[in-house]
Design a binder for these strands. Sequence first.
RNA 1: GUGAUUGUAGCUCAGUUGGUUAGAGCGCCAGGUUGUGGCCCUGGAGGUCGGGGGUUCGAGUCCCCUCAUUCACCCCA
Length: 430
Amino acid sequence: MPHYQVVKGARDIFPDEILQWKHIEGVIHRLAALYGFNEIRTPVFEYTELFQRSIGSSTDIVGKEMFSFLPDPAGRSITLRPEMTAGVMRAALQKNLLAAAPVQKLYYISELFRKERPQAGRQRQFSQFGAELLGVSSPAAVAEVITFMMHVFEVLGLQGLTLRINTLGNMDDRKRYREALRNYLAPFYEQLDDASKERFEKNPLRILDSKNPEMQEIVTGAPKLHDYLGRESLDDFEKVLFYLSVRGIPFQIDHRLVRGLDYYSYTAFEVTSSALGAQDALGGGGRYDSLAVELGSSGEVPASGFAVGMERLLIAMQKQGLFSDLEAAAPSVFVIVQQQELFDQALEIVTRLRRAGISTVIDLAGRSMKAQLREANRMNAANALFVGSDELASGKCTMKDLRSSQQEECLLEEIIEKFRQSEPLNPPRS
RNA sequence: GUGAUUGUAGCUCAGUUGGUUAGAGCGCCAGGUUGUGGCCCUGGAGGUCGGGGGUUCGAGUCCCCUCAUUCACCCCA
């Protein structure tokens, strides 16, 4: 039993799993380029107020899940980011990106931190990939980010996904609805659970998607948000659904979908996977026009975005066997040393092969030939190159194809030439 | 924060109503083959039985505490 363990809720990712991550990341980067999204990286921490203002102080994230600390006794509180949108918006506003170009399409793959009890599909350090489309108020913008997200899932081969979508209306609609909802809930106030009582004042909409059966009971008779939506909101939502339909993206309208962050308006959506456990939300997002103003912008910045949990993506793909054809990079040549006295000369050969662009390894531990061969086999090396007194005397090498077990003697130059033909040094990008 | 679950070798796990030196498979190392891997055979290394306390002649096994794990609630990716 090792003395030290990883911090609760964090985990190590070892080389075999890195293959899976790189595969997913590769698809994300490729499709982002296809859709014209550009990568952004922001610091892992921000001033705590940023999250309090943006995510909302009534949310669980801000209320109890943030890792916050004081960098020095007199300093401002800093928080390890629990989500990306606030930081990206802060960066965009600080640099005044929209003045340089009025439409910004950004994406990221980043690490986030939330102080929760870990369980399947939930960690304290986790990562999300996501996109933010700033500066466009057209419903085509939300449709664009949803399409990008669903396209990634499709290329990765995921099955069993459900896209649920709703509209929360604009700020005026929500204000009117909030009042109506409060009037309806007021007589039930004493029956509300603690969380719902808290939300009654701050954000009663969130009582709607409570999973507490008793709350659900109370809420069934509540006025419907949909009935309070103005013409503008309805038109916007219809357009979003139209764009999705046209692109063949299946969805379910769910009028109870609210989502936890305070800054959403208009469209909100969520994708769940049947391959996941209790934490089955693979990703979600929406429209958040009011966020910029909340962060001090003089005018509204229409914005749409989504975030997808990378670990959950990974779990879902593993469950569905979507990584079966991934193979670790194997060296082309494993140089085998007959006697350790010849090691230095063998190293020179290794260097020449590497300089020629041929991936080459050699046993550095001074082990027996048998152990070296076993290692070559374990690494799935394509060839073994034997360096012994005979070879050095004749100036030739013995090269063995480890798959076919055929071996032949030839000059080192011939080997290099052979590889140059079969694996070019600068392979064309696919 | 709440509930439940599981902690025995590097990994996956056995361990009978408490009873001698705690086992298996896989993996690792070495030898069989002193210049040749995989397959096979033989051998070897590796364990404070999560930790602490208690009951007992005797505890991996029973009791208490503690730490950690996992799953679930809450909420979210």
